[in-house]
Simulated assay, not measured.
Amino acid sequence: MHTRTIEPKRPSRPPRRPAGKRKRAVQANITAYGFLCAALFCFAMFAWWPIIRQVVLSFQETNLVDEPTWVGLDNFRTVVADPAFGQAWTNTVVFTLLALVCGYVIPFAVAIVLNELRHARGYLRFVVYLPVMLPPIVSVLLFRWFYDPGPGLFNQVLDVVGLPALSWLDSSDTALISLVIVSTWMNMGSGVLIYLAALQNIPGDLYEAAELDGAGIFKRIWNVTVPQTRLILLLMLMLQIVATMQVFIEPYMLTGGGPENATVTVAYLMYQYAFVYGGNYGAGSALGLMLMIVLLAVAAVQLRLTRDEKR
């Protein structure tokens, strides 16, 4: 008796697309490929290449004119040995924490208030977002007049209510918080609009159910609003930390790092190394590389938290 072996069927290959169809498909998407190449070129020239260049400069001694000299970790040793190094990091961390209290909580509270309003909502949105549309230098110069110890607006208000005048920018006790106020006022509008968009996507049934259960306004915010917007809150937290740790315009224009290095930040110290201390671009790049590593760590933690929230 002969046994008949049945050979397994080979998987059928998908029919090949004719060369003409492939060519037409490429031609149909040629515009998309062009835009993609242009975007990649812009990223490479204005984002990736400067990062690579900074990493290389941090290990070199150069004035960007003469031939650079490879010095290894000497730039990092120079930066760490600087007495202003620790003060700059301390000021940056304190500024970031204060900015989180003011620039993270206040925009969320303002967005909640705007979301509850029924009249003049568009006008109030415009008023809140107006500082963002102003050039940063204009906002800083405006607050320089506000903080003026003589005819400044803030001291005039204090005088009206019977309080003593303050040396807003000339005292180490108030200089840093004064910069936080400026930064919060300049950047609050963007956060308010983002929070407001997130709040408007929350179903109203959740608030009605919470209200029927006897929840007050603060319980509704804590048990409904915050959980429903937690992903946006985490994203804005990362953006807030990254932005505030790179603060430069405020100390540069208002205090010059003073008084007594009370407002020297990491970004401002980078500027001093590169453009004030004889063009030490290597040390400035080394400090910038340290800051970039810290910000990458913050971004990694935020991405991990966001991923856990999505599960």
Rank of each mutant, 00 (worst) to 15 (best):
A175L: 02
A120T: 05
I221L: 15
P136Y: 03
A38W: 04
T62P: 02
K219W: 13
K310D: 10
V138G: 06
L73F: 15
P149C: 02
L287E: 05
A32H: 09
L237S: 07
L199K: 05
D173S: 13
Y277Q: 09
G214W: 01
G257Q: 06
M188D: 01
G279K: 03
G103M: 15
F146L: 06
R125A: 11
L291M: 11
V101T: 12
E208G: 04
F146P: 01
E309P: 01
V26L: 14
A44F: 04
V93Y: 03
R230P: 03
E61L: 02
V127G: 08
V294D: 04
T244P: 02
A300T: 13
F154V: 08
F248W: 01
L97Q: 06
V242Y: 02
S171P: 04
M238Y: 11
R77C: 03
G72K: 05
W48E: 03
G34T: 09
A25I: 07
A243G: 10
A38F: 08
S139M: 11
L254M: 03
A297C: 12
S12D: 10
F126G: 14
Y271Q: 05
A39W: 06
P151R: 05
S167D: 14
T31V: 09
V180E: 10
I6H: 11
A47Y: 13
W70P: 01
P83V: 14
M188N: 07
F146W: 14
A120I: 07
L100M: 15
Y123G: 09
A299P: 06
Y123E: 08
D74A: 15
R77W: 04
T255D: 04
I6V: 14
L237N: 02
W185M: 01
R17M: 10
V101Q: 15
